[in-house]
Amino acid sequence: MELSVSQCGDVCVVGVRGSVDGSTAAQLQDTVAGQLTGSAARMVVDCTGLEYTSSAGLRALLAGVKECRRHGGDLRLAAVSGGVRRVLDLSGFTGILRIYPDVDSAVSSYAG
């Protein structure tokens, strides 16, 4: 798993590539939590390069979105595809997370 962090205006974009499983999910959760400072509760997780996740990755996302919303913000997903999308569907996460086709639309969704 590879993580990257960038800023688009007041939106923090966390890029996740590769595989999130039980041995890597804590790193994702820590990275998301580490960006939650002050006004940085608006987050987008860019799943463009995310090929695989287990429930450990979902737990990291769930913890992140709960924390962001508690701070008055949100955590939104971008560019989810293939098996990852199916894991989200099977887990009922598509009903509680906002998912956008790409990073630009996820970032601009905060402007409305």
């Binding site: 287990s54 429930s55 979902l58 737990r59 769930l62 709960k66 099977l90 509680i96």
Partner: peptide
Amino acid sequence: LHAPLEARPVGGLGCHLVRSV
């Protein structure tokens, strides 16, 4: 799977996923 976000436990999905796939 239809519980609101606040009521979702952080975990407990793994067995459900195995049974699903």
